[in-house]
């Protein structure tokens, strides 16, 4: 009888589920979703790389193939499939270059590693001289 009462009450209160792809739930403030990187604030200090428990962030240098003078580019490689969205890098970054968006990361067809160039650390004339 107890279960019947619960079921009858539910008949008159409407559905509690959502029509998912068209209707999405609102995330709470501070939900740990997608990781957003702002390369313009990055100073290449390496705190995020050291704080990351899964090794999802790597800072690296590479030859700039777009130029002919053997210049170097400073890169940040981020593997979203290794990332566990713990927020350690966000807390560790002293320059506010990383933040956690509220909406979660979307599924992808390919496991692509995102590579960002750090503009603050470009090949400049004084380095060349």
């Amino acid at each position: 009888m107890g279960m019947l009462g619960v079921v009858l009450r539910n008949l008159f209160t409407g559905p509690v589920t959502r029509r998912y792809p068209s209707e999405r739930r609102e995330y709470f403030d501070g939900s740990r979703g997608r990781l957003v990187f702002h390369p313009e604030y990055c100073e290449f200090c390496g705190e995020c790389e050291r704080a990351c428990p899964t090794g999802a962030i790597e800072l690296d240098t590479a030859w700039d193939t777009r130029r002919q003078d053997y210049s170097i580019v400073w890169l940040r490689r981020y593997n979203p499939f290794k990332c566990i969205f713990c927020g350690n890098c966000v807390e560790a970054c002293p320059y506010g270059a990383i933040e956690l968006a509220e909406e979660p990361a979307v599924p992808r067809y390919r496991k692509e590693i995102s590579v960002d160039e750090i503009p603050n650390w470009q090949w400049t004339e004084w380095v060349a001289s």
């Binding site: 995330y27 709470f28 501070g30 939900s31 740990r32 566990i84 969205f85 713990c86 927020g87 956690l100």
Partner: peptide
């Protein structure tokens, strides 16, 4: 789980 997400940022893995 909503309480958990509100207070910790995640539904199950609170971290």
């Amino acid at each position: 789980l909503d309480v958990s997400e509100l207070t910790s940022g995640h539904r199950i893995i609170q971290s």
